[in-house]
Amino acid sequence: MTATAAHLREVTDETFAEEVLRSDVPVLVDFTADWCPPCRMVAPVLARIAEQRRDTLKVVSLDVDRNPRTQAAYGVLSMPTLVLFRDGEPARSVVGAQPERRLVEQLGLDEPR
Rank of each mutant, 00 (worst) to 15 (best):
E51M: 07
D34K: 12
F85W: 00
E14R: 10
S61G: 11
H7A: 13
T70V: 11
A17Q: 10
T70W: 00
E14L: 07
F31W: 03
N67K: 10
P37C: 09
T15Y: 14
D55R: 12
G75V: 10
L109K: 01
H7C: 06
G108T: 05
L28F: 13
R102S: 13
T15K: 06
E10C: 07
A17L: 03
V29M: 03
H7Q: 14
P99E: 13
G108F: 08
R101E: 15
P38M: 15
F31D: 04
A91V: 11
A72T: 12
R102P: 07
D13N: 08
T15R: 02
V45I: 13
D63R: 06
A50S: 11
Q71V: 13
P80A: 08
T15C: 04
L46D: 04
L28H: 04
R40T: 05
V11N: 00
V45F: 00
L107A: 04
A43Q: 02
V11G: 01
V25T: 15
D13G: 10
E19L: 02
V45S: 06
G88R: 02
R54V: 12
L46P: 12
A6Q: 15
R54G: 03
S61P: 02
D30F: 08
V83Q: 08
R69Q: 11
G96A: 09
M41L: 14
D87W: 12
M79I: 11
M1F: 13
V95A: 02
D63V: 08
H7T: 11
E18K: 10
E100F: 02
T56V: 09
R48L: 04
A73G: 05
R102G: 01
M1R: 11
G75K: 14
R69V: 09
A33I: 02
I49T: 04
R54N: 06
S78M: 09
A43D: 01
